[in-house]
């Protein structure tokens, strides 16, 4: 009994953690290029809303995910335009993005409130891998977007740390003047990764509505965008570490549900607080742990790059 419960919790941890992971991976790229996009919450919401609307109207899961990616990508493009070209304060711009996207998703989704999703992302087994005891059950009996996230973690790790593309990306975030002097178009690079980051946040939102909470409600993300943002910092901008962190937060959330399911005598409202409290605790712990390492994070993050000045 207890074994089944643990297994169920861990499986759920991966499923709950994946939207966080997808969004965090996007933000890792964005921040490594030197731009802070605080609008994750808004972009996830917009991704979820647009996915849901497309799903209801076309009944195609694929188109739904694409719609989520495209809409959030467009929002990120707005953020890119304001923060890269107009050199607007990136924190303010991110807050504006959240508010606008939150409002827009609620406004556009007004006719879809409370409708259940016509279908959800199906889970399927990966042959052979799914047969590994425990591990197979937890990691290899999931839906397609979960597998996509595995691929992204591996791919991004390789890309960021072992290729010229990654070198350029990191240089733009660490020392854009140096990158520029070596012929890299800093602002174009930043645009690309900001938009890609937005698209991943959108897919994170799609995942949420196509699997985790399959029904549209205003503000359904409930702070997951901010948790994803915290994951980026906790993971020190590394995809693999983000994966671990995302599953921890997913696990906390899953634990809350599991405890409710076995009717532990704690109010469900209090259990809902768990992920938020966990985020605060983990952030504090990571900050204390990294205190000796000096400043963390891309050196030039939030600093606009002005070619004429360099």
């Amino acid at each position: 009994m207890i074994q089944v419960m643990i297994l169920a919790t861990l499986t759920a941890a991966v499923a709950q953690g994946t939207p966080l992971l997808l969004t965090a991976l996007g933000e890792i790229m964005t921040q490594r290029s030197g731009v802070l996009n605080l609008g994750l919450e808004g972009m996830m919401l917009m991704g979820a809303a647009s996915s849901f609307m497309v799903l209801v109207n076309t009944n195609s899961l694929f188109l739904a995910v694409v719609a989520g990616a495209v809409c959030s990508g467009l929002l990120a493009l707005v953020h890119g335009f304001l923060s890269i070209t107009c050199r607007v304060h990136q924190i303010i711009c991110g807050l504006a993005l959240n508010m606008f996207a939150g409002g827009l998703s609620g406004y556009l989704g007004k006719d879809y409130n409370g409708i259940p999703a016509p279908k959800v992302l199906p889970s399927f087994r990966i042959p052979l891998l799914a047969d590994i005891p425990y591990v197979g059950e937890i990691f290899f009996y999931q839906n397609g977007l979960v597998y996509l996230s595995y691929g992204l973690v591996i791919g991004l790790t390789y890309l960021i740390f072992h290729t010229q593309i990654g070198l350029k990306l990191r240089a733009c975030g660490e020392n854009p003047a140096a990158a520029y002097s070596m012929g890299i178009s800093v602002n174009r690079t930043r645009y690309i990764y900001v938009v890609m980051g937005g698209m991943l946040a959108g897919i994170g939102g799609s995942f949420l509505i196509l699997s985790t909470v399959p029904s549209w409600v205003e503000n359904m993300t409930g702070g997951r965008g901010w948790i994803a943002l915290a994951i980026v910092t906790c993971a020190m901008w590394k995809p693999a570490a983000a994966m671990a962190a995302a599953y921890v937060f997913g696990g906390v959330e899953a634990l809350g549900y599991q405890l409710q399911a076995v009717s532990v005598n704690v109010s469900p409202v209090l259990l809902k607080m768990l992920p938020y409290l966990a985020t605060i605790l983990v952030l504090a712990a990571v900050s204390i742990g990294n205190q000796d390492k000096g400043a963390a994070g891309p050196e030039a993050m939030t600093t606009p790059f002005i070619p004429e000045d360099n």
Binding site: R170, M182, I184
Partner: peptide
């Protein structure tokens, strides 16, 4: 003011931007 990326190695700085 050197245009070097501090957290990169010597080799990484040298090949940065080389297509």
């Amino acid at each position: 003011h050197f245009k070097l990326v501090k957290p990169f190695t010597v080799a990484e700085n040298i090949v940065l931007g080389m297509e």
